[in-house]
């Protein structure tokens, strides 16, 4: 998985490269539009366009029946039933292309997620870093964190034995990409912490065995078999995404922009959706 993540990181790193000094809005716009159009093409290639048209026509036809038979309650009920059934038929036609789109869209969303869900720390901000240890042989008291220059401990670490977890509250005093080295005896577990004022991939969690965490946090490799820790988390601040003065979740922005782009291009590409 780490290899795939590394390859995808390289590709998306290149995609984001032209926007390194731009507002986060621009890469979102470009990627959403390109994704919208690309997905449209895939949708056309993998769906039964005639069946979709027929299913849509059925929905529209039954819709017109509401106006036509508005005085007949019995027919109205029939029509509602027909609308639901034909809507299901219509949605059924989207299942196949959905399967084809699942992986590429998932990858895009994950790569956007690592950049837009959280933001790196700013100088002067504090953050909680958590380390979880599942191995009972490891004494939490023996685990320590070496801080590089630019980071300082805000308050002493808190060890929660019941959760097998240690929490550090750190404050950034300089900008940069810092390496947090968690040590237990000779064993070292590394985790990056970003203190930059730019759109950068942020890894909120790295895990030892949790494939879900590895997939959703592709910017850093997983902890490796020799790691004494099972999970390291950094509670980065959530990114406020603003699109022309409107604050909204990045996913909503992606959804709306890609839909608008697809809607704009569907006629030109002759796609029935």
């Amino acid at each position: 998985m780490d290899l795939i993540n590394a390859a995808l990181n390289t590709v998306f790193g290149l995609v984001f490269l032209p926007f390194r000094n731009a507002s986060p809005v621009w890469p979102m716009l470009v990627i959403s539009v390109v994704t919208g159009v690309a997905m449209l093409v895939i949708f056309k290639a993998t769906s039964d366009q005639n069946a979709i048209k027929r299913a849509k026509n059925l929905v529209k036809g039954h819709f017109l029946a509401i106006r036509l038979y508005k005085d007949d309650i019995g027919l109205m009920v029939d029509t509602m039933k027909n609308i639901i059934v034909s809507n299901l038929l219509y949605m059924k036609q989207s299942l196949r292309p959905m399967l084809f789109l699942l992986v590429p869209v998932g990858i895009i969303l994950i790569q956007l997620g690592v950049r837009y869900e959280f933001r790196p720390l700013k100088v002067g901000e504090a953050v909680v870093v958590s380390l979880r240890v599942e191995d009972a042989a490891v004494e939490l008291a023996d685990v320590r964190l070496d801080l590089p220059e630019g980071l300082e401990l805000n308050i002493p670490p808190v060890r929660v034995e019941q959760l097998r977890e240690i929490n550090w509250r750190l404050k950034a005093t300089q900008s940069g990409v810092f390496n947090l080295a968690f040590k237990h005896g000779d064993h070292v577990v590394d985790k990056r912490l970003q203190v930059v004022d730019a759109l950068a991939p942020v890894t909120a969690q790295v895990a030892k065995h949790d494939i879900g965490v590895t997939i959703m946090n592709p910017a850093e490799s997983s902890l490796g078999e020799a790691s004494f820790a099972s999970l390291v988390s950094i509670s980065y601040p959530v990114r406020d995404f603003e699109l022309w003065g409107f604050s909204l979740h990045w996913l909503v922005a992606f959804f709306v922009i890609s839909l608008i782009a697809a809607f704009g291009f569907k006629g030109m590409l002759g796609v029935e959706v």
């Binding site: 994704t35 449209l40 929905v59 789109l101 869209v105 959804f255 959706v273």
Partner: peptide, 24 residues
């Protein structure tokens, strides 16, 4: 949300259902 095509389908279905229930 799985791509704009399917997104359209679900959005349209929802709108159609909403509109038809509203009309009904």
């Amino acid at each position: 949300y799985i791509g704009p095509g399917a997104g359209f389908a679900f959005l349209t279905s929802f709108l159609m259902l909403f509109a038809s229930f509203f009309m009904a």
